[in-house]
Amino acid sequence: MIARFTSVVALVAMVSGPAPGHRAAGGTISGKVTYTGTPPKARPIDMSKEPSCVAQHATPVTTQDAVTGAGNSVDYVVVYISAGDEGAAAATDTVRYEQKGCQYIPHVAVMQVHQPLAVLNDDPTSHNIHPLAKVNAEWNKSQPKGAPPIHTAWDQPEFIAVKCNVHPWMHGYFVVLKTPHSSITDSTGAFKLEGLPAGKYTVTAWHERFGTQSQEVTIAGSETKTANFVLTARPY
Protein backbone atom coordinates (compact mmCIF):
# COMPACT_ATOMS: atom_id res chain seq x y z
CA MET A 1 0.00 0.00 0.00
CA ILE A 2 2.74 2.41 0.94
CA ALA A 3 4.72 1.48 -2.09
CA ARG A 4 1.72 2.09 -4.29
CA PHE A 5 1.06 5.45 -2.67
CA THR A 6 4.67 6.50 -3.26
CA SER A 7 4.50 5.61 -6.90
CA VAL A 8 1.30 7.61 -7.34
CA VAL A 9 2.96 10.61 -5.73
CA ALA A 10 5.95 10.15 -7.99
CA LEU A 11 3.69 10.01 -11.01
CA VAL A 12 1.87 13.15 -10.00
CA ALA A 13 5.19 14.82 -9.37
CA MET A 14 6.40 13.83 -12.80
CA VAL A 15 3.46 15.46 -14.50
CA SER A 16 3.00 18.55 -12.39
CA GLY A 17 6.57 19.40 -11.45
CA PRO A 18 6.94 20.05 -7.72
CA ALA A 19 8.89 17.46 -5.79
CA PRO A 20 7.04 15.44 -3.11
CA GLY A 21 8.82 17.28 -0.29
CA HIS A 22 6.88 20.47 -0.98
CA ARG A 23 3.47 19.17 -0.20
CA ALA A 24 4.28 17.94 3.27
CA ALA A 25 3.22 21.20 4.95
CA GLY A 26 2.15 24.75 4.25
CA GLY A 27 -0.81 26.47 2.70
CA THR A 28 -2.77 25.75 -0.42
CA ILE A 29 -4.25 27.99 -3.09
CA SER A 30 -6.98 26.42 -5.16
CA GLY A 31 -9.59 27.70 -7.54
CA LYS A 32 -11.22 27.52 -10.92
CA VAL A 33 -10.57 29.20 -14.26
CA THR A 34 -13.52 30.23 -16.41
CA TYR A 35 -14.03 32.48 -19.42
CA THR A 36 -16.43 35.17 -20.57
CA GLY A 37 -17.14 35.87 -24.23
CA THR A 38 -17.22 33.42 -27.14
CA PRO A 39 -14.39 30.90 -27.46
CA PRO A 40 -13.34 29.61 -30.88
CA LYS A 41 -14.89 26.36 -32.08
CA ALA A 42 -12.88 23.25 -31.45
CA ARG A 43 -12.00 22.21 -34.99
CA PRO A 44 -11.39 18.68 -36.25
CA ILE A 45 -7.80 17.88 -37.17
CA ASP A 46 -7.27 16.34 -40.60
CA MET A 47 -4.35 13.92 -40.25
CA SER A 48 -4.91 12.17 -43.58
CA LYS A 49 -1.30 12.70 -44.73
CA GLU A 50 -0.11 10.36 -41.94
CA PRO A 51 -2.19 7.16 -42.12
CA SER A 52 -0.26 5.58 -39.22
CA CYS A 53 -1.57 8.35 -36.94
CA VAL A 54 -5.10 8.29 -38.33
CA ALA A 55 -5.19 4.61 -37.38
CA GLN A 56 -4.46 5.45 -33.72
CA HIS A 57 -7.61 7.52 -33.23
CA ALA A 58 -11.01 5.87 -33.09
CA THR A 59 -12.77 9.24 -33.05
CA PRO A 60 -11.67 12.39 -34.87
CA VAL A 61 -9.23 14.50 -32.91
CA THR A 62 -9.97 18.19 -32.35
CA THR A 63 -7.79 21.19 -31.64
CA GLN A 64 -6.56 21.71 -28.07
CA ASP A 65 -5.69 25.40 -28.15
CA ALA A 66 -9.03 26.38 -26.57
CA VAL A 67 -10.60 23.46 -24.71
CA THR A 68 -13.59 24.56 -22.62
CA GLY A 69 -16.05 22.63 -20.50
CA ALA A 70 -19.27 22.88 -18.53
CA GLY A 71 -19.78 26.14 -16.67
CA ASN A 72 -17.38 27.97 -19.00
CA SER A 73 -14.41 26.16 -17.47
CA VAL A 74 -11.08 26.35 -19.30
CA ASP A 75 -8.71 23.40 -19.67
CA TYR A 76 -4.92 23.68 -20.05
CA VAL A 77 -4.53 26.91 -18.06
CA VAL A 78 -1.21 27.12 -16.26
CA VAL A 79 -1.60 28.64 -12.79
CA TYR A 80 1.66 29.38 -10.98
CA ILE A 81 3.35 31.55 -8.40
CA SER A 82 4.93 34.38 -10.33
CA ALA A 83 6.27 36.22 -7.26
CA GLY A 84 6.75 35.52 -3.56
CA ASP A 85 8.39 32.10 -3.49
CA GLU A 86 11.87 33.06 -4.68
CA GLY A 87 14.49 30.66 -3.42
CA ALA A 88 12.22 27.63 -3.27
CA ALA A 89 13.97 24.31 -3.91
CA ALA A 90 14.22 23.34 -7.57
CA ALA A 91 12.64 20.24 -9.02
CA THR A 92 15.08 17.68 -10.40
CA ASP A 93 12.81 14.96 -11.72
CA THR A 94 12.41 14.57 -15.49
CA VAL A 95 9.44 16.03 -17.34
CA ARG A 96 8.21 13.73 -20.10
CA TYR A 97 6.80 15.07 -23.34
CA GLU A 98 5.41 12.42 -25.65
CA GLN A 99 4.48 12.35 -29.29
CA LYS A 100 1.72 9.83 -29.75
CA GLY A 101 -0.83 9.56 -32.51
CA CYS A 102 0.60 12.79 -33.96
CA GLN A 103 -0.37 14.71 -30.83
CA TYR A 104 1.63 16.07 -27.93
CA ILE A 105 0.96 14.47 -24.55
CA PRO A 106 0.53 16.55 -22.50
CA HIS A 107 -0.61 19.41 -24.69
CA VAL A 108 1.03 21.80 -22.24
CA ALA A 109 4.08 20.69 -20.25
CA VAL A 110 5.17 22.77 -17.28
CA MET A 111 8.75 22.65 -16.09
CA GLN A 112 11.22 24.67 -14.13
CA VAL A 113 14.27 26.38 -15.46
CA HIS A 114 17.08 23.76 -15.80
CA GLN A 115 14.66 20.92 -15.00
CA PRO A 116 15.42 17.85 -17.15
CA LEU A 117 13.05 17.40 -20.09
CA ALA A 118 12.73 14.19 -22.09
CA VAL A 119 10.98 14.20 -25.47
CA LEU A 120 9.80 10.79 -26.65
CA ASN A 121 8.45 9.51 -29.94
CA ASP A 122 5.95 6.67 -29.53
CA ASP A 123 4.76 6.83 -33.14
CA PRO A 124 5.73 4.55 -36.03
CA THR A 125 6.73 7.65 -37.96
CA SER A 126 9.33 10.40 -37.76
CA HIS A 127 8.56 13.68 -36.01
CA ASN A 128 10.53 16.86 -35.72
CA ILE A 129 10.37 18.82 -32.50
CA HIS A 130 10.58 22.52 -33.10
CA PRO A 131 10.24 24.67 -29.96
CA LEU A 132 9.77 28.23 -31.26
CA ALA A 133 11.80 29.77 -28.45
CA LYS A 134 12.54 33.49 -28.49
CA VAL A 135 14.31 34.01 -25.16
CA ASN A 136 15.95 30.61 -25.00
CA ALA A 137 17.89 29.13 -27.90
CA GLU A 138 15.51 27.79 -30.53
CA TRP A 139 16.12 24.29 -31.86
CA ASN A 140 14.60 21.95 -34.40
CA LYS A 141 15.41 18.28 -34.57
CA SER A 142 13.99 15.13 -36.08
CA GLN A 143 13.20 12.09 -33.99
CA PRO A 144 12.76 9.06 -36.22
CA LYS A 145 10.62 6.17 -35.09
CA GLY A 146 12.37 4.14 -32.43
CA ALA A 147 14.97 6.85 -31.83
CA PRO A 148 16.16 7.34 -28.24
CA PRO A 149 14.54 10.16 -26.19
CA ILE A 150 15.89 13.67 -26.63
CA HIS A 151 17.16 14.91 -23.25
CA THR A 152 17.33 18.65 -22.79
CA ALA A 153 16.47 21.56 -20.46
CA TRP A 154 15.74 25.29 -20.72
CA ASP A 155 17.84 28.13 -19.30
CA GLN A 156 15.30 30.94 -19.07
CA PRO A 157 11.64 31.20 -18.08
CA GLU A 158 9.51 31.35 -21.23
CA PHE A 159 6.23 30.19 -22.77
CA ILE A 160 7.50 28.24 -25.77
CA ALA A 161 5.15 27.09 -28.54
CA VAL A 162 6.16 23.67 -29.85
CA LYS A 163 5.44 22.47 -33.34
CA CYS A 164 6.15 19.58 -35.64
CA ASN A 165 6.71 20.67 -39.23
CA VAL A 166 6.18 17.19 -40.58
CA HIS A 167 2.69 17.26 -39.07
CA PRO A 168 1.78 20.96 -39.02
CA TRP A 169 -1.33 20.40 -36.89
CA MET A 170 0.80 19.22 -33.97
CA HIS A 171 0.96 22.04 -31.52
CA GLY A 172 1.82 22.25 -27.85
CA TYR A 173 3.64 24.30 -25.24
CA PHE A 174 6.66 24.11 -23.02
CA VAL A 175 5.94 26.41 -20.08
CA VAL A 176 9.26 27.11 -18.39
CA LEU A 177 8.86 28.72 -14.96
CA LYS A 178 11.12 29.85 -12.15
CA THR A 179 8.77 28.51 -9.52
CA PRO A 180 8.29 24.92 -8.42
CA HIS A 181 4.66 25.83 -7.56
CA SER A 182 2.44 25.38 -10.57
CA SER A 183 -0.67 23.57 -11.66
CA ILE A 184 -2.51 22.94 -14.92
CA THR A 185 -6.29 23.16 -14.91
CA ASP A 186 -8.17 19.98 -15.61
CA SER A 187 -11.31 19.55 -17.68
CA THR A 188 -13.34 21.27 -14.91
CA GLY A 189 -11.03 24.28 -14.89
CA ALA A 190 -9.79 23.45 -11.38
CA PHE A 191 -6.26 23.93 -10.11
CA LYS A 192 -4.44 23.56 -6.77
CA LEU A 193 -1.11 24.97 -5.60
CA GLU A 194 0.11 23.16 -2.49
CA GLY A 195 2.92 23.28 0.04
CA LEU A 196 3.17 27.07 0.18
CA PRO A 197 4.99 28.51 3.21
CA ALA A 198 3.38 31.53 4.87
CA GLY A 199 3.83 34.63 2.79
CA LYS A 200 2.44 36.99 0.19
CA TYR A 201 2.21 35.55 -3.34
CA THR A 202 1.33 36.72 -6.81
CA VAL A 203 -0.65 33.98 -8.52
CA THR A 204 -0.79 34.08 -12.33
CA ALA A 205 -3.02 32.17 -14.72
CA TRP A 206 -1.78 31.81 -18.30
CA HIS A 207 -3.66 30.46 -21.30
CA GLU A 208 -2.24 30.30 -24.82
CA ARG A 209 -5.26 32.04 -26.41
CA PHE A 210 -7.12 33.75 -23.57
CA GLY A 211 -4.15 35.61 -22.13
CA THR A 212 -2.77 36.15 -18.62
CA GLN A 213 -4.24 37.29 -15.30
CA SER A 214 -2.70 37.77 -11.86
CA GLN A 215 -3.92 38.31 -8.31
CA GLU A 216 -2.29 38.53 -4.91
CA VAL A 217 -2.92 35.95 -2.25
CA THR A 218 -1.54 35.91 1.29
CA ILE A 219 -1.02 32.61 3.06
CA ALA A 220 -0.78 32.71 6.84
CA GLY A 221 -0.23 29.04 7.72
CA SER A 222 -1.66 25.66 6.85
CA GLU A 223 -4.76 27.16 5.30
CA THR A 224 -6.46 26.80 1.91
CA LYS A 225 -7.31 29.97 0.06
CA THR A 226 -9.42 30.28 -3.04
CA ALA A 227 -8.42 32.27 -6.11
CA ASN A 228 -10.65 32.19 -9.19
CA PHE A 229 -9.78 33.58 -12.59
CA VAL A 230 -12.09 34.78 -15.36
CA LEU A 231 -10.39 35.06 -18.74
CA THR A 232 -11.74 36.78 -21.84
CA ALA A 233 -12.36 34.59 -24.89
CA ARG A 234 -12.69 35.74 -28.50
CA PRO A 235 -14.06 33.60 -31.33
CA TYR A 236 -11.24 34.24 -33.81
Binding site: S126, N128, K141, S142, Q143, P144, G146, A147
Partner: peptide
Amino acid sequence: PGGAAGGVMTPE
Protein backbone atom coordinates in the same frame (compact mmCIF):
# COMPACT_ATOMS: atom_id res chain seq x y z
CA PRO B 1 25.61 11.80 -31.99
CA GLY B 2 23.42 14.71 -33.09
CA GLY B 3 22.65 13.47 -36.57
CA ALA B 4 22.39 9.76 -35.97
CA ALA B 5 21.58 8.99 -32.35
CA GLY B 6 21.94 5.22 -31.93
CA GLY B 7 23.31 4.87 -35.46
CA VAL B 8 20.05 5.57 -37.34
CA MET B 9 20.37 8.86 -39.17
CA THR B 10 17.73 11.56 -38.95
CA PRO B 11 16.12 12.84 -42.17
CA GLU B 12 18.04 16.10 -41.86
